[in-house]
Design a protein around this nucleic acid. Structure first.
Lengths: 231, 231
DNA sequence: ACTTAAATGAGAGCACCGCTCTTGATTGCG
DNA sequence: CGCAATCAAGAGCGGTGCTCTCATTTAAGT
């Protein structure tokens, strides 16, 4: 199906990749707002209208970059999870968190593209939902192992939250107790609160040693999902 | 000093306000990316160049909107803190959190303007730092009262975090113990992680009953800064 | 009260943007 | 080999932020 049919098909793949690379370079240099199709085409030595053979619109190019960014941060998270296999769950949790943060500070504009203000319409395109879930799934995986192992310690669920907790658990991890699922979703979003505040400059003149601050906060987040300090 | 000198000065104030109002309307309708000086001028019945007498650039207009947005969400937080005076600290904490969230979901584009991707340069203009601190200060105020009252319960500080914790405490609340200050900063950013994920659509098809989910998460955040369930 | 300087609005214009359409090669399949 | 799909290029449309010039109006100083 994806076999290269000929020189033309091969060229199309290469040019598509070149466009994305140049767009990514401009994104890293100036941010999504300044990304211009004309500048990308100019840098690639082609005319702007030719670019529309590969991406039907600027938003579609951005969507491609969004998918790639989700995949990149998701891969970083999964790699951290894999590299920390065998360690204690809480250490693995913080390793994944730190991997996410490291990727974010290394690629601030790409991070802003996916976890900042949604720049196109209100709803994300279909293609982005699966890549967007990878970080969350990596976190779930670690907690799942801990739950199967020595178990996790969680406070009881408020009655009002019980129905919603059941829904969430059914959606993201039917094998986990509802209280754990809802704690996971909360911790997941709070992790990106920490990262976003750092990347977007809200910690300016507030937090200096961000590495150790983040490590401690991430560890605390792990405890909030029931991971034990001496598991 | 701010006395109105004449009709011209009065008109300038009114026109400046009208420009901001129209810009805010367009912001709410289409988002910051689509905000156009020309469209604002057109809607106000003036020519685009005339608008530059009031705002030197589009970014300056946006900065004005940013300041207003910070003030609006800060005022909402302070109002929630004032209205809940006398209640138990943890309830007041969640009240402030819910006020922030309520403002955010009511003004998603303005929220995105201040807590989404920073659209102008990397560093926020000077005028924004004071208004941006209001929500944090409201939270600090509540915890400070709780600390002066029946006290707060916090886990011990890791040794590695001790220097940074001292710095943070000196910056934001010298009267509070360092462990509490660092927990506050973390909870502060995590609060906006929860809100951002909801406003930016990351909770789509994950969290349904967002009111109760958020209330529980905010309450847990309050416990993370040492507020006691039955204080 | 008169003059003078500052403030304001209008208009033209520049460079850039996303995007569309047409035209003429080039490629590859039947 | 011929025909259809693919592609680069160019011109062009309406839009943008922003600058400059030029009247006109207002406010202040003498």
């Amino acid at each position: 199906m994806t076999t290269v049919r000929g020189a033309r098909a091969r060229a199309r793949i290469e040019i598509t990749a070149a466009i994305k690379d140049e767009a990514r370079a401009q994104l890293a240099a100036e941010g999504a707002a300044k990304l211009s199709l004309r500048a990308v085409a100019r840098e690639l030595g082609m005319v702007s209208s030719a670019l529309y053979r590969y991406f039907p619109s600027r938003d579609d190019l951005l969507t491609a970059l969004i998918v790639d960014a989700y995949d990149a941060v998701g891969a970083a998270a999964e790699r951290a999870a894999a590299d920390s296999a065998g360690q204690r769950p809480l250490d693995r949790w913080t390793a994944v968190c730190r991997a996410v943060r490291a990727w974010a500070v290394a690629h601030p504009h790409e991070y802003a593209l996916i976890y900042g203000s949604p720049v196109p319409g209100y709803t994300a395109p279909r293609d982005t939902v699966a890549p967007a879930a990878r970080v969350g799934l990596a976190l779930i995986g670690i907690v799942r192992l801990a739950h199967a192992g020595e178990g996790v310690a969680l406070p009881p669920l408020p009655d009002a939250l019980r129905p919603e907790a059941g829904r969430i658990a059914a959606d993201i991890a039917p094998d986990l107790p509802p209280a754990l699922a809802v704690a996971l979703v909360a911790a997941w979003s709070q992790l990106f609160g920490l990262v976003s505040f750092e990347v977007f400059g809200q910690f300016h003149r507030v937090v200096e040693d961000r590495d150790t601050f983040f490590a401690a906060a991430a560890r605390r987040l792990g405890q909030d999902v029931g991971l034990l300090p001496r598991g």
